[in-house]
């Protein structure tokens, strides 16, 4: 196999990556490109091949076909030089229950050939601090809650300054406050220049933190690119909240708005703006001038979920 030269500015690059388990293709011909410095959302329903892909990228399983490069070097061949620069949380945390949180991190740090034992204590301390576990550092890991375990797993990914962080479902098991903290942490790390590769089946999570995203379904890559571009594919809808729906529909239709739908429950009229959209302020003024009482008026931005449904033409269910 002659590996293709690495594309500059790309930290993860796969070509034709595939993995077959007992006859079924878990991952099928994946061509992924993760730009350096991005927060990359890796999106797909449960069972779509996200974790299998991550395991191949981390050298845990051998691809059936295709190749993968991480930080410009082929995987799994270059594991020893690549992985010290990569922090990973794969399929949830895994801990030694009979060791304290701190000793768990010391154990993982001792497994890293490039880790300096002299700075181990300090690095473990600052990783614990970063995920807010300092107070529980001496507690046995089996007494940790799921959220605390998740945080400890994240801490192990942060033992060293990393070029790339691979986080598989990092907010799993966290309460809303914890989720918010993780998102803040991810943004902070990205600001430091770390590329963050974040897998999730939660669309709004990806939408809130990611600059780029890829969507997988049934082992295949459906699309990838900047988040703004992905959701731009579907245009937003105009949304008017009013007690006078009939008049509203008439005025909007006169201004070229199509696909008008009235929802009596929410008292909302929604519609598709024309290709050359009129000034929204004037549209609102026209409604008021026609005697329509407007409670709410605005453009609902297309969400990633709209984009996903538009791309796959299906819901976001577990793949059979």
């Amino acid at each position: 196999m002659t590996p293709v030269a690495p594309t500059p500015g790309v930290v993860i690059e796969t070509s034709g990556l595939a993995k077959q388990y007992r006859g079924t293709l878990a991952v099928d011909g994946l061509d992924l490109q993760v730009p350096r410095g991005s927060v990359f959302g890796f999106l797909g329903p449960n069972g779509s091949g996200k974790t299998t892909t991550i395991r191949m990228l981390m050298g845990l399983i051998e691809p059936t076909a295709g190749s993968a490069r991480v930080l410009g070097r082929p995987m799994p061949r270059s594991s020893r030089s690549v992985l010290p620069k990569v922090g990973a949380l794969i399929e949830g945390p895994a801990l030694y229950g009979f060791l304290s949180g701190q000793d768990n991190l010391i154990r993982y740090d001792a497994a890293d050939p490039t880790a300096d034992p002299r700075t181990r204590k300090a690095r473990v301390g600052s990783a614990l601090d970063r995920v807010g576990l300092t107070a529980a550092a001496g507690k046995k890991a089996k007494a940790y809650s799921l959220g605390m375990k998740q945080r400890l797993g994240l801490a192990s990914a942060l033992l060293q300054p990393r070029e790339l962080l691979v986080l598989d479902e990092p907010t799993n098991g966290l309460d809303p406050q914890g989720m918010r903290e993780i998102r803040a942490l991810v943004r902070e790390l990205a600001d430091d220049g770390t590329t963050v590769f974040l897998s999730s089946h939660l669309l709004d999570e990806i939408e809130q933190v990611c600059t780029h995203a890829a969507v997988m379904a049934r082992g295949r890559l459906i699309t990838q690119g900047p988040v703004a571009e992905l959701s731009a594919g579907t245009r937003g809808r105009l949304e008017v909240t009013t007690p006078d729906p009939v008049e509203t529909v008439r005025v909007l239709a006169a201004h070229g708005v199509t696909d008008l739908v009235t929802d009596p429950h929410t008292a909302q009229v929604t519609g598709e703006l024309p290709a050359e959209p009129p000034d929204l302020a004037e549209l609102n003024a026209a409604l008021v001038a026609a005697g329509v009482r407007v409670r709410g008026f605005g453009l609902r931005r297309a969400s990633l979920e709209d984009a996903f449904v538009a791309l796959t033409g299906e819901g976001f269910d577990v793949a059979g």
Partner: peptide, 13 residues
């Protein structure tokens, strides 16, 4: 317990 995968990505070799 799953700790094997974290040792291998550390990477313990």
């Amino acid at each position: 317990t799953g700790t094997l995968r974290y040792l291998l990505v550390a990477p313990a070799g």
